[in-house]
Amino acid sequence: MSTPNGVSAMGTGSGVLVLADVTRVHGRGPTAVHALRGVSLTVGAGELVAVMGPSGSGKSTLLNLAGGLDHATAGMVAVEDMDLDALSAAQLAAVRRRHVGYVFQDLNLIPALTAAENVSLPLELDGATACIARRQAREALAEVGLLELVDRFPDDMSGGQQQRVAIARALVGDRRLILADEPTGALDSETGEEVLRLLRARCDAGAAGLLVTHEARHAGWADRVVFLRDGAVVDETAYAVTPQAIATSS
C-alpha cells in the first residue's frame, strides 16, 4: 500500500497537469521542512482529482506548485506540457492567466466590480478587448447559472452566488486546469454541493480539476482521491463502477 513514490506515477506528457517526483523543502540544514517528498501525480483532461490529508500534510503546497505560485525544490511540474520551472517570470504569469483557474476558500471577488467585471478582469489583464472579455464573461456566468445577475455587485449576492461568480472567473476563457482549495468554504451543505456539481460538470466537459479538501463528502465527487501524509502520497482510490454499491453498503 505505501509506495510513496510510485502510487500515482503515470508518465509525463499525458496530462493537463503533471507532477513528476516533486519535492519541496522549506529552509535548509537541520531545520529544513519537507513539505512534499517525491510526489508524482497526473491530472488528465476530463478528470477531477481530490487531495486529502491532515493539516501539514502538504495539500496547499501541492496546489501552489500546480498553479505556479511556488517552485519545486526538485522534480518537475508541467501544465499543458510546459515545464513551469523552465519558464521566465513573464511566461509563468501568462500560463497562470491563460491556462489555470483558481477557486479559493476566500473568494477574492473585487467588491467595486460587478459579477461580469470580476469575471472578465483576468481576460482584460491578459490583453483581450473589453468586448470579447465581456462576451466570454457572460458565457462563463451563464454556465454557472448566473446570467441574470451579471450586473450585480458581490455584496448584493448570496454566499452561494458569490462562489459561483468565483467559479465562473476560474473557468472563463480556455482554461483547462482548475485548482480548487476548499472551494465550499463556509457554504451550507446544499450550496456547497452545487459548487461541487459545477466543478464536476466542468471536468466532465473536458477540464482537468485538482481539488484540495478536508471534506470527504466533497472528495466523493472526484474520480480519484489521493491521500497525502507528511508530504508523501500514501494511497489513492479510483472510482470503479459497481452498481451494487448501495445494496452492499446498506
Partner: peptide, 12 residues
Amino acid sequence: RSESMRVLQELT
C-alpha cells in the same frame, strides 16, 4: 479510509 472513500465516491 480508502475503502470507505471508494464507497463514498460510488454513492456520490
